[in-house]
Amino acid sequence: MGFKLLSKLLVYLTASIMAIASPLAFSVDSSGEYPTVSEIPVGEVRLYQIADGVWSHIATQSFDGAVYPSNGLIVRDGDELLLIDTAWGAKNTAALLAEIEKQIGLPVTRAVSTHFHDDRVGGVDVLRAAGVATYASPSTRRLAEVEGNEIPTHSLEGLSSSGDAVRFGPVELFYPGAAHSTDNLIVYVPSASVLYGGCAIYELSRTSAGNVADADLAEWPTSIERIQQHYPEAQFVIPGHGLPGGLDLLKHTTNVVKAHTNRSVVE
């Protein structure tokens, strides 16, 4: 069995187990497998329904001669939608809004960016022009300005110390501490036991640490421990890039980060 097929099978099995364990909360999309990078042309966006009122959005972007996937989250909030992270750029984010209108038909009224990198804030200006209120932590807003990236308009308070959590509509926002970046936030959907790890969490097929220019490698494993301790009931975990899975993604990420750190020390 090929690795790609095995990865998709694991996603399907995880979703099936969740649907059985929580039949009222989960209505997993039966329309197909989780979209992969090879299936999404740059400039297009796919939506994948995880649970009743919960979707991931998947886009792709060219970077350094390669094409990478990027995940975000959409959560229903009454007759409105909360968006977590842009679709990595203005063109993708405009396509995301169009796809949401086509498939869901509810307005996106608020959006949260989970850290300051372009795959999370690139497209904020498109959201703002569409009347979406954009939010991020003060740290993310400051770092985005320093980096020359787009800056969300509103500040999220109460997320300055490791372990801080605040309720934001249908989700809980959690600051686990520094990891992929010093400002990275985690998003949890309690009604569906869905954990969105953003770039602080890796997919299972990833074996290298990737972009760690703004990471705190020493603190990252401790931050992941905080996530595990705060959300032990999480059933569906979405990484910032690639295929979702279960809580095993947290341990896998820790292993990859520690291996990278150990290699760096040896070198």
Rank of each mutant, 00 (worst) to 15 (best):
P41I: 14
I227R: 02
P23F: 07
R263A: 07
D216S: 13
Q235D: 15
S27Q: 14
A200E: 02
A98I: 06
I84D: 00
I227T: 12
Q103V: 13
R206M: 06
I104M: 06
V54E: 03
G198V: 04
A209R: 11
Q229C: 04
A90Q: 13
R226E: 13
D29L: 09
L156T: 04
S161D: 15
R206T: 07
I151P: 04
S205C: 04
K102I: 15
V266F: 12
P41N: 07
L82C: 14
I224W: 01
G169Y: 04
V194R: 01
V28M: 09
T182Q: 13
P69F: 15
K4A: 05
P23W: 09
V146P: 05
A111W: 04
K102N: 13
D248P: 10
S208V: 09
F168V: 08
D214N: 07
G198W: 04
P41R: 11
H241M: 00
S56R: 11
T140W: 02
G177K: 02
V132K: 03
L81V: 11
S162Q: 15
V126C: 05
S113H: 15
W55H: 04
L243N: 13
D52M: 14
T86W: 00
E233V: 13
V171A: 07
L204A: 08
N71C: 02
H154K: 06
G32H: 15
T182W: 15
G246W: 03
M18I: 06
E172Q: 12
V112Y: 03
L247D: 06
T140G: 03
F116R: 05
V212T: 12
K251Q: 15
V256K: 04
A21N: 05
T93D: 00
V194G: 02
W88A: 02
L195I: 09
K91H: 15
G32R: 09
L243M: 06
G242K: 03
S62F: 14
I186E: 01
L159E: 02
A95P: 03
V28L: 08
G177T: 00
F26W: 06
G65K: 12
T60S: 08
S208P: 07
L127N: 00
E233A: 13
G53K: 08
A259T: 09
S30L: 08
E147Y: 13
Y202E: 09
V132N: 04
D79R: 12
S160A: 14
G2R: 06
G242C: 04
A19H: 03
V112H: 04
R76Q: 06
I151D: 02
V45R: 02
E99H: 14
Y12R: 13
G43F: 12
I84Q: 00
R206G: 09
V37Q: 10
Y34I: 15
Y135Q: 01
S27C: 08
S155E: 13
P232L: 12
F168Y: 06
Y12Q: 11
D164H: 11
V166P: 04
A25M: 11
A95H: 15
H180A: 01
I224K: 02
S137V: 06
Q235T: 13
A209Q: 09
V194K: 03
V171M: 05
S16D: 13
A87G: 11
V11G: 07
N255A: 12
P239H: 00
A90H: 15
G89I: 01
P152D: 02
A136F: 03
H252Y: 04
S205R: 12
V265T: 10
E267F: 11
V146H: 10
P239N: 01
E101Y: 08
N149W: 09
V257R: 01
S62R: 12
D64C: 04
A90V: 11
S160V: 14
L156A: 03
V166S: 07
P35Q: 11
K91S: 13
N71M: 01
L159R: 02
T109P: 10
I20F: 08
K258H: 12
R141S: 06
S56P: 05
V11H: 12
S56Q: 05
G197N: 04
T261F: 15
P232T: 07
A178T: 06
A215M: 10
D77G: 09
N184V: 01
D52F: 10
L47K: 01
A133D: 14
G72W: 01
D119F: 00
R110G: 12
V112M: 11
A165G: 09
L195N: 00
L5Q: 12
V28R: 09
L73N: 00
A25Q: 10
T182G: 11
S16I: 15
L249N: 04
I40C: 07
V75P: 01
I84G: 02
K251E: 07
P190R: 05
G131D: 09
E145N: 10
S191A: 07
A94H: 13
H260N: 13
S208K: 13
L204V: 13
L247G: 09
E172L: 05
A234R: 02
L73T: 02
S70F: 02
R206C: 11
Y48H: 07
R141C: 07
P244Q: 05
Y135S: 02
M18E: 05
I50R: 02
W55R: 01
P221G: 13
P41S: 10
A144Y: 04
I17L: 06
D248I: 04
L47G: 02
A66Y: 12
S62A: 14
V257T: 06
G72V: 01
V256P: 01
N149V: 13
I40Y: 05
S205M: 11
N92Y: 04
T14A: 11
I100K: 01
I50C: 02
I100F: 03
A213Y: 14
R167S: 08
T36S: 06
S113N: 15
D79C: 13
L10Q: 13
A192Q: 07
K102F: 05
S181N: 00
V54G: 02
N71A: 08
D77F: 10
R141I: 11
I238E: 01
G43A: 13
P69A: 13
G242A: 03
E99Q: 06
S181K: 01
G245Y: 03
P69D: 07
H154M: 15
A259D: 06
V194T: 07
I104N: 01
G245N: 05
A178M: 10
P190A: 05
A259W: 13
K91F: 11
A136K: 03
L81E: 02
T134D: 04
L96C: 04
G197T: 04
T114C: 00
Y231A: 03
V67T: 09
S56C: 10
V124K: 03
R141E: 02
L97A: 01
Y68M: 06
A133H: 11
L47I: 08
V11E: 05
T254M: 13
N184E: 01
C199I: 00
E267N: 05
H57C: 02
S137I: 11
S137N: 14
G158E: 09
Q61E: 08
G163W: 09
A259S: 12
W55G: 00
A133Q: 12
L6K: 05
T134F: 02
Q61V: 11
A213V: 12
P138F: 07
V171N: 01
V257W: 02
L247V: 10
E225D: 13
V256Q: 06
L106G: 10
V146L: 12
R110E: 08
P69K: 06
Y188Q: 01
I74D: 03
